[in-house]
Simulated assay, not measured.
Amino acid sequence: MIAIIGSEAPGRLQWAMTMGAHAQLLKPVGNNGIYAALLVARSNFDRDHASQAQIAGLETRLSARQTVVQAVMIFVMRGKTEAQAYEALRQIAMAWRVTIEDAAARVVASNANERVQDDSACHG
């Protein structure tokens, strides 16, 4: 977005940035500055888009940390040290060619399925 503003007053510039403008043009719009404003706007838009994607990815990974801890605890309960548990999870992720978070989710789900099957066998 390119804001077309009537003055370069600090309040007007702040308003344009708050509205999400990636660049500004001063009225009256003439031949000067249009190409530069387009380049700046595109560059700022691309940077914003990349930052938003990176933040979303980090938020997803952060929300999956609890699952990673659960997977590590499953390995610890099976007799591994914490370091061995993290290494086992890393090896599984590499073997499956998935992220640590995805591997942890599979380990936790698999453990839950094993518990359900064990409970069925005990009560069956």
Score class of each variant (00 low, 15 high):
S110H: 05
T18V: 09
R65H: 14
N32H: 07
Q52P: 02
D118Q: 13
A93T: 12
A121T: 05
A53S: 00
A36D: 03
I74G: 02
A93D: 11
M19H: 11
H49K: 04
A56G: 01
Q70K: 14
I4S: 08
D46R: 04
A37F: 04
R42Y: 13
Q91F: 03
A41P: 03
L26P: 07
R12E: 12
T99S: 05
A3E: 01
E82Q: 06
A93K: 09
K80N: 09
R47Q: 07
V108Q: 04
S51Q: 14
R12V: 14
I100M: 07
A41Q: 06
A105W: 13
E82M: 05
Q52A: 11
Y86M: 11
V69T: 00
T18I: 09
Q66K: 09
Q84A: 13
A16L: 11
N44L: 08
H22V: 04
L89E: 01
E101C: 09
R42M: 11
P28M: 05
V29Y: 15
A88K: 03
I55N: 09
A23W: 10
A83Q: 10
Q117L: 12
L62G: 01
E59W: 10
I5G: 01
H49A: 09
N113K: 10
F75V: 08
H22W: 06
M19D: 07
Q84P: 06
E59Y: 10
L26H: 10
M94V: 14
L62T: 00
D46G: 00
I2P: 04
G124H: 03
M19A: 13
G11P: 07
T67D: 06
G57R: 08
R65W: 15
P10H: 02
R115S: 15
A71I: 02
Q117N: 07
T67N: 04
Y86N: 02
D118E: 15
W96M: 15
V72K: 01
A64S: 00
G79V: 07
R61T: 05
Q84E: 12
S110A: 00
G20F: 02
Q91G: 08
S43N: 12
A88E: 07
Q24D: 11
Q117S: 13
A104Y: 05
G33D: 04
D102W: 15
T81R: 15
I100P: 05
A109L: 15
L26D: 03
Q84L: 15
S63K: 04
D118H: 06
A3Y: 01
A112H: 01
R90C: 11
N31I: 01
R47M: 06
M17F: 09
I55F: 11
M94E: 09
I4H: 07
A64P: 01
A85E: 01
M73I: 08
D119Y: 00
S63A: 08
T67S: 07
S120F: 12
Q91I: 14
L89M: 04
N44C: 05
K27G: 02
S63T: 12
